[in-house]
Write a protein that binds this DNA or RNA. Structure first.
Lengths: 143, 143
DNA sequence: TCTCGTTTCTGGAATAATTCTAAACTATTG
DNA sequence: CAATAGTTTAGAATTATTCCAGAAACGAGA
């Protein structure tokens, strides 16, 4: 689409990602996006990401972390996963998939859609449509 | 099991339910159990139940509502359902089943297990065992 | 039925996660 | 480079929930 012009350093990938999402590539969004999208899929809470940013020497307020996670989610480049009361996880994998939730560690692990067969869904009540089907497999250490 | 003796009015069912769960049948637990277990399966939040109790003329503190819901859950006569960040639902149906979550109204609706076929679950990571599999079908008004 | 040891309840303070707000700041565009 | 619109931020405010310590209620035994 847009080409790399003159003096601006070639998009670091992340910047393109943000622009496509309609988000101004600010210092903090770029830093967060790098942490989130460069590498494997991630499942983070706001606090997680905040700590990670600090650790990486990036100064970003917690409010901005929340704003960014929601903006990324609204833009469709992340999605929110709710597995524990009082805590939201944000997932960089927006494709169709499910999760293992490790109750002891509080961590999430993807399960590819193909591995789980959800069928015969009852029709959504009339006038309603299905937004998403979440499957959460809760696991914990053997007793 | 226990028989109805003399002067104590026959167990109102709810009392037996509580005793079996190992919970002393106090005024507030009896009232809450009646609201919860006499009738159809229910999905309530602590606030919901608190309001309902008040409406029924029963005076119970919010702290007790929380305590009771957790005790009922620990005793296995209710279960907790997490579908929205920052809000816990408690379900009187402890059998195997799933849920529709109506995003507009914030209400839950049971889906009998038979209607959903979850198969080919990947083995739980070693040393771990599956506690539960939750399927949440999120629906909302057509766009 | 009275008494006592325990469990339970309660209001209010405390905590935790998240959102709001208004002011300061920074991309972007001309 | 200036103007404007979008962003960030610290801190206050909210919301849901838990904690606490004293008061009240339960139930076993005399």
């Amino acid at each position: 689409m847009t080409e790399n012009t003159s003096h601006t350093r070639p998009y670091s990938g992340v910047i393109a990602h943000l622009k496509q999402a309609g988000l101004r590539p600010t210092r903090q969004r770029i830093a967060l996006a790098k942490l989130l999208f460069e590498g494997e899929n991630r499942h983070v809470t706001a606090e997680d990401l905040h700590a990670e940013a600090r650790a990486a020497g990036v100064s970003v307020s917690l409010a901005t972390i929340y704003n960014s996670l929601h903006q990324f989610t609204d833009a469709g480049i992340m999605r929110e996963v709710v597995v524990e009361a009082g805590r939201s996880y944000f997932d960089t994998n927006t494709g169709d998939h499910h999760h293992f939730f490790h109750e002891d560690t509080g961590s999430l692990e993807d399960i590819p859609t193909e591995l789980i067969n959800v069928s015969a869904l009852p029709a959504a009540p009339q006038g309603k449509s299905v937004q998403r089907v979440d499957v959460i497999v809760r696991v914990s250490a053997d007793d």
